[in-house]
């Protein structure tokens, strides 16, 4: 719970992954937004995707 209450007290700082039009609202009220030029993973086939997930799993 505490983290949400903390958020309410802080200045919002936004990372926007996807539609760049979603920058506009926050930026209009002076909030900093970093836009991500996102692209889907190169793993378009199941085998690579599964393998990638296994490998990324150890990131935690």
């Amino acid at each position: 719970m505490r983290k949400i209450s903390d958020l309410f007290k802080k200045e919002l700082k936004v990372i926007n992954i996807g539609l760049s039009s979603f920058r506009e609202g926050p930026e209009e009220v002076g909030v900093k937004v970093v836009q991500v030029d996102w692209r889907p993973p190169a793993a378009s086939d199941e085998e690579t995707m599964d393998a990638l997930k296994k490998l990324l799993g150890s990131k935690k």
């Binding site: 936004v14 990372i15 926007n16 992954i17 996807g18 900093k32 970093v34 996102w38 692209r39 889907p40």
Partner: peptide
């Protein structure tokens, strides 16, 4: 323009909100 969340955090280490609107998959 960073290409990933990780890259974006390089530029804004104190970010606290992430808006995500990429394909549901």
């Amino acid at each position: 323009m960073p290409k990933s969340l990780e890259g974006a955090l390089d530029f804004m280490p104190d970010a606290n909100m992430v808006i995500i609107s990429v394909a549901g998959k």
